[in-house]
C-alpha cells in the first residue's frame, strides 16, 4: 500500500481542500439556489511596516464570540452580531464557536490557543519580538453579506484599532 492510500487521499485529485467547491456542492445539496459568490479581487492593498515589529502595537481579530454560557441553540433566537472589542487580560478560557462553520467532526475548539494566539503573543511581547499587545482583541462577525462587512464591521474594527493605537493586526478566521 502506498503512503497516499494508507492516508486516504487520492493523488489523482487535488489533495488540498477547496472550501469554495465543497460549500457550493453542499448548499446545492441542501436545495439552496444561486451558489454563493465569494469575494474576488484583482487588486490587493498592501501597507508595509512603518517601523520594526519590536516597536509596534499588535491587535488580534477573531471571528469567535465571547462565551456567555447561555447561548441559544436555536438560530432563530440569536440576534445579529456586531463587531466587539474585549480586554486581552485575562485571556478568555473559552470562546463560543458553535455557530461558526468549522470541522466539528475532525477537531474541537476547547483550547483557545488553537485559534486565538493571545498567550503566545504575550510571550513574544515579553521577549521583545513585538512591541506590545493591544489591551483589547476584536471580534468580527462572519457575514453572508460582503456589503455589511465592508461598510459596517470592517470600519468598526478599524475604529477599535485606532482607539487602541494598533500599528499591525493579526486576523484569525476559523
Amino acid at each position: 500500500m502506498s503512503f497516499q492510500e494508507a492516508h486516504e487521499v487520492n493523488p489523482a485529485r487535488r489533495v488540498f481542500v477547496s472550501y469554495i467547491d465543497k460549500s457550493r456542492e453542499y448548499y446545492l445539496a441542501q436545495d439552496y439556489g444561486n451558489p454563493y459568490r465569494w469575494a474576488y479581487n484583482r487588486d490587493v492593498p498592501f501597507a508595509p511596516l512603518a517601523k520594526p515589529l519590536a516597536e509596534c502595537r499588535l491587535g488580534v481579530v477573531t471571528t469567535t464570540s465571547l462565551a456567555t454560557g447561555d447561548e441559544p441553540a436555536d438560530l432563530a433566537e440569536r440576534p445579529p452580531k456586531r463587531a466587539y472589542a474585549h480586554p486581552v487580560d485575562p485571556i478568555p478560557e473559552r470562546m463560543f464557536t458553535m455557530d461558526l462553520s468549522w470541522d466539528k467532526e475532525a477537531t474541537h475548539t476547547n483550547d483557545v490557543g488553537s485559534f486565538l494566539p493571545l498567550k503566545q503573543l504575550q510571550g513574544f511581547v515579553a521577549k521583545g519580538r513585538v512591541g506590545s499587545l493591544s489591551p483589547r482583541f476584536y471580534g468580527l462577525p462572519t457575514e453572508y453579506s460582503q456589503r455589511k462587512t465592508n461598510t459596517i464591521d470592517a470600519p468598526d474594527v478599524l475604529q477599535f484599532c485606532r482607539e487602541d493605537g494598533v500599528d499591525v493586526a493579526l486576523l484569525v478566521p476559523m
Binding site: 488540498f16 477547496s18 472550501y19 469554495i20 467547491d21 465569494w38 469575494a39 479581487n41 490587493v44 492593498p45 498592501f46 501597507a47 508595509p48 511596516l49 512603518a50 481579530v61 471571528t63 494566539p117 468580527l140 462577525p141 462572519t142 457575514e143 460582503q146 462587512t149 465592508n150 464591521d153 470592517a154 470600519p155 474594527v157 478599524l158 484599532c161 494598533v166 500599528d167 499591525v168 493586526a169 493579526l170 486576523l171 484569525v172 478566521p173
Partner: peptide
C-alpha cells in the same frame, strides 16, 4: 472571507495585516 475583507480594509487604511487561516482558497 469576512476576515479577508477586513484585512483589506485595514491595509487600505495603513495598518499592515497577517491572516492565519486554513481555508486557503477563500
Amino acid at each position: 472571507m469576512s476576515v479577508s475583507l477586513t484585512a483589506r480594509h485595514l491595509e487600505a487604511n495603513g495598518i499592515p495585516t497577517v491572516v492565519m487561516a486554513s481555508a486557503r482558497d477563500i
